[in-house]
Design a protein around this nucleic acid. Structure first.
Lengths: 128, 128
DNA sequence: CGGAATCCAGACGGATACTG
DNA sequence: CAGTATCCGTCTGGATTCCG
């Protein structure tokens, strides 16, 4: 488990320690859609291994960005969701996504089935 | 040099490839304050080694987020700045910083001299 | 001043086997 | 189903030295 420092020069450094790395932002993004089970996340992100998924979810949980709920059933069911604080990151993730979309368009990079910034926008206006 | 994929599942993945890692977000954040020379960046971020600084700046340049300008003088002078597109990420970085500040406050983490989201806010209202 | 080259440790990530 | 445990290779990042 990655320990935070007791002191930071700049908030950006803290943010990098909290959500840096290859998977965390992606996990938070997908969890913002709604609660997800372990294997549901694996299907959503096929490239991640069980080991990495467990590890990253545990760190997010440890830093209070993700909540892990265990239902004592057989077979066991575990549901992951963002905490209120983790959820507060959503506008930022959304901004990142939009910026990424713009970059992809500018550079002619193909974007696939996944939930993108534009989809999100469309979805929001559908709701209103 | 990290090559981008020709196709992405999700814009977030593209964004991670563009500005992921330990240094890029921090560099873009500092470059948004204004153009900076190589050793100026080193002083701003004392923990980064020359190798990493060069490497990360080159990748940012290669992806069109940072511009590198060489002045043919003795001693040589090289100035780095954000491109227009790199600059478009600023609101996102600002949002990250604010969120990080909130986290630090919530968790009682000390924040130091560096340019933070709040400082930025203060600065903007000073200008207006 | 602004790098490049080299070497090395540790983090990251894959495969496989096992478990309540 | 939702993990743990272990082994192992790759690869990123850090320290140091050298260079025009």
């Amino acid at each position: 488990m990655k320990e935070l420092q007791s002191e930071y020069q700049c908030a950006i450094n803290l943010v990098i320690d909290l959500i840096g790395g290859k998977w965390k932002v992606l996990l938070l993004w997908h969890l913002n859609e709604g609660d997800k089970r372990f294997n549901e996340l694996r299907r959503t992100i096929p490239e991640i291994t069980k080991k990495m998924l467990t590890q990253q979810l545990r760190e997010l949980e440890g830093h209070g960005l993700v909540k892990r709920t265990v239902f004592e059933e057989v077979p066991p069911r575990v549901v992951y969701s963002t905490t209120d604080f983790g959820h507060r990151l959503q506008p930022v993730l959304y901004g990142m996504c939009q910026w990424g979309d713009d970059y992809a368009e500018k550079e002619g990079i193909q974007m696939n089935s996944c939930w993108t910034g534009r989809d999100f926008m469309k979805n929001k206006s559908d709701l209103s």
